[in-house]
Amino acid sequence: MNALDVVLVAALVVSATMTVMTARLLRAVIGLAITSAILTMIMFRLAAPIAGVFELSVCAGLIPAIFISAIGLTRRLAAEELPARQQERLRRFWPLPVLLVLAIIVLTQWPLPIGLPDSQGPEPVTDLSTLLWNARPADLLAQVALLLGGAFAVVMLVKNVGREHE
């Protein structure tokens, strides 16, 4: 382990905390994208480049786009309510950094009897594409079903609900 790893992990935790604690939802979504980018860097460091690329394009691109369009469809919070809401939210969220620091102190000082397995021998199938398409076909079919499910969700829940509230 070197200094880079420590920096990456610290950045991940800090950006996750800020994503969760920030006042404005749009900032939270951008924070989510940044957290995903940091995770991608970690994945590159852990020799998972292809998964890293997926993570970047989907979780730092597609999902924030979905969130932003959803937020864009909601109405802006009325100006008077904003400070009160912010204070209330801060009151509920301030224990978080405190708890995190406590957790860091506890986990680094207290030796947990965690053992790791010995080396397991080389990987039987090292080709990612073979694994993805041939070795786990059931998963593949399930993913197709999931995406169809998502499509039906949009069709059934968003299109048909009339603009009753507007």
Binding site: R136, A138, D139, A142, L146, G149, G150, A153
Partner: peptide
């Protein structure tokens, strides 16, 4: 795979 199919059912 159990997890993935559970998610299909849940969705």
């Amino acid at each position: 795979s159990l997890y993935v199919f559970l998610e299909v059912t849940s969705v």
